[in-house]
């Protein structure tokens, strides 16, 4: 769990500290505070649990106990493109688990893990409420309905291509300067 924080993350921590002070020191703020942190930094590094405990005047283990209870909170950084595969009932009936497996196979990671390059992570989620479009996968913020195993490859490829294009663009800009 103890990973080195990137410089971006260290900057985010400062930001979090500032935001934290806007929350009143009330137990009821524990979950909103954790949500705020995760929005800032995408997961809950150990440093942040300590900050929260100090701010709210409770023990760290209390914070940890609450944070580990809820599905939403992560303790590892997710990928740049978090993939969520819906396994709600409708998606299950329409073979959502096969979609999940395909992502796992293509990315060579299991559900709950992040690729070593931190590009992708896979999570299973319980119903995102788009049941009429089952099976559903969400990449980043975009919902993809009527998924099929063959579509998995296409989606990943699209992201790869977009990334390459971005890099090329970047290089062009840099060399243009």
């Amino acid at each position: 769990m103890n990973q080195e924080l990137t410089t971006e993350e260290q900057a985010a921590l400062k930001n979090i500290a500032a935001k934290l002070s806007t929350f009143e020191r009330q137990r009821g703020n524990l979950i909103p505070v954790l949500q705020m942190i995760q929005e800032e930094i995408a997961y809950l590094p150990p440093e942040t649990l300590k900050m929260v405990a100090e701010h709210l005047g409770i023990f760290e283990c209390e914070v940890y106990g609450v944070a580990t209870f809820y599905n939403q909170f992560r303790f590892r950084p997710p990928g740049k493109h978090p993939i969520k595969v819906c396994l709600g009932t409708a998606c299950h009936v329409r073979a959502g688990d096969i979609i999940l497996e395909n992502f796992e196979r293509k990315l060579e990671i299991s559900e709950g893990e992040t690729t070593p390059d931190r590009e992708f992570s896979i999570e299973r989620v319980a119903c995102v409420g788009c049941c009429a479009m089952a099976p559903v996968a969400i990449i980043g913020e975009t919902v993809h309905g009527q998924m099929a195993p063959s579509k998995v490859e296409g989606l990943l490829m699209r992201i790869e291509i977009e990334k390459e294009m971005e890099e090329r663009e970047k290089q062009k800009n840099e060399s243009g300067r």
């Binding site: 649990l49 023990f59 283990c61 940890y64 106990g65 209870f69």
Partner: peptide, 17 residues
């Protein structure tokens, strides 16, 4: 200094921190 941690079947007592 002790708490329940995780959830469901995986629930344990933890002394985090």
């Amino acid at each position: 200094v002790l708490t329940f941690a995780k959830r469901g079947f995986d629930t344990v007592i933890s002394s985090y921190g």
